[in-house]
């Protein structure tokens, strides 16, 4: 061991005593409290917009919202009243078709990624999913216009569904992958050791065990695209009448909100507020359902 001179020790002791005798402790404590206050204030301010928006929409929308509103077509300009039945039916139909497209593909790809943790293809696929997720929705609109609308010769609900499916795909893939990756390896081994083939192990053991997570992801992805407007502008396009033909233009809630909100007519603004309220309620309900599924169906190990 190295020698430490007594004088050196004494010097260090004095120095640290003088510096560590914290004369500023009061100020430091005040700073600490002030900082927390700042953080809390900023956080509270950040949440105000949500409260304002929800409050405003409920205030404006609650008057419009009734059975008539949900079951009638919009009235022409100058006639108050009317409803958004075409948009409601349109939104639901467009979403159903996009679910049919996106859910199976998304889950299958999610399974692939959760199984192939290290493969090259898995790496590129994951990268592609990340990039896909970041593409601005308006660009998706252009793409589907070129891929579907132009070849089909016109706007259609189907093209809108394809656009929304493309937007749902990344989040379904990711939630499926994340869910299945967390399942213990022993589960798969238990099944394989019983002589269950790989594909049956995946479909009958792995997927059912992760079902609540997968389903939660699917519901959240629906909630995320249900209000998407930009990709529908050049695809589903909108339709002032009731239409259930997916090969023809179709209305949807976000489209009707956009068109009516930017119109100069008060009656139409009223319709748009009502439609906004319906949309927000649908999103809230989907979020609540996802929470319930997550909690109630959670598989215990």
């Amino acid at each position: 061991m190295e020698m430490v001179l007594e004088a050196e020790l004494e010097k260090k002791k004095k120095l640290s005593q003088s510096r560590l005798a914290d004369k500023h402790i009061g100020r430091r404590n005040k700073k600490n409290i002030f900082f927390k206050g700042l953080i809390v204030t900023a956080t509270v301010i950040s949440t105000l917009p949500l409260l304002f928006i929800l409050f405003y929409i409920f205030k404006q929308g609650v008057g419009a919202l009734n059975w008539h509103f949900l079951t009638h077509l919009p009235n022409p300009v100058g006639e108050p009243g009317g409803g958004v039945s075409n948009a409601l039916v349109g939104s639901i139909m467009i979403l159903l078709v996009s679910c049919v497209i996106a859910i199976p593909i998304g889950i299958v790809i999610g399974i692939y990624l959760s199984e192939e943790k290290r493969s090259r293809l898995g790496y590129y696929c994951r990268l592609a999913v990340d990039v896909l997720q970041g593409i601005p929705s308006i660009v998706i609109g252009i793409i589907i216009y070129e891929w579907v609308v132009r070849p089909m010769g016109g706007f259609s609900a189907l093209s809108g569904s394809v656009a929304l499916a493309l937007m749902m795909l990344p989040s379904i893939i990711k939630s499926t992958e994340e869910t299945l990756k967390l399942l213990p390896e022993s589960l798969k081994e238990a099944s394989l050791a019983l002589g269950v083939p790989y594909y049956k192990t995946i479909m009958k053991v792995i997927v059912p065990t992760g079902l609540s997570g997968i389903l939660t992801g699917v519901i959240l992805s629906i909630a995320r695209v249900i209000g998407e407007t930009a990709p529908l502008l050049f695809t589903a396009f909108g339709n002032p009448f009731m239409s259930t033909n997916i090969l023809k233009p179709m209305s949807s809630l976000p489209l009707i909100i956009f068109n009516y909100a930017t119109s100069p007519y008060n009656d139409w603004h009223q319709l748009a507020w009502g439609a906004s309220m319906v949309l927000i309620l649908m999103i809230l309900i989907l979020n609540i359902i996802s929470k319930i599924v997550q909690r109630k169906w959670k598989v215990q190990f």
Binding site: P184, S186, L187, E189, A190, S191, L192, A193, L194, G195, V205, P208, T209, L211, V299, Q300, F301
Partner: peptide, 16 residues
Amino acid sequence: RRKVGMVFQRPNPFPT
């Protein structure tokens, strides 16, 4: 594997 049974270190019943 159907002819050879296996029991693992940690019990792993199917949770579903």
